[in-house]
Amino acid sequence: MSRQLLDRQLVDVQGRLIGKVDDVEFAIDPEGRPYLGTLLTGPGALGLRVGGRLGRMMALAAERFVTDRPMAPLRIPYPLVARIDSAVWLRVRAEELPAPPVEQWLRRHLIDRIPGAGRAGG
């Protein structure tokens, strides 16, 4: 089950791209059986899974853009998943989830300062 989910694209209810399933967390139910609890996405979680120097470098590069370190991944409780095909579709809209910190930082410091940032090219 987790193999089917890992590295899939996360998509919100309107088709916006949220990130990839970078890692998954299992939880234990009252009867002691493990179940899929949470999907994790973000450079921190991905860096840990990639491992090695490459993974650390990537996580460190992403952390340069945030103030609170280490960078916490975005946690998506599994019940928010609506369906799974070639992507993992969520029941919520992207705005209801915390915005990715790197995206926010780049928006504030770079992209929004360039004229025309609010207009789609088509």
């Binding site: 996360l10 995206e103 609010g118 207009r119």
Partner: peptide, 24 residues
């Protein structure tokens, strides 16, 4: 596409800032 970021020319640059940053 590797990281799963929003990409493409159909959305405005401010909705796909990481994509447009890599482009720049």
């Amino acid at each position: 596409q590797y990281f799963g970021w929003q990409w493409g020319k159909r959305v405005s640059p401010r909705e796909a800032t990481r994509f447009h940053t890599v482009l720049l």
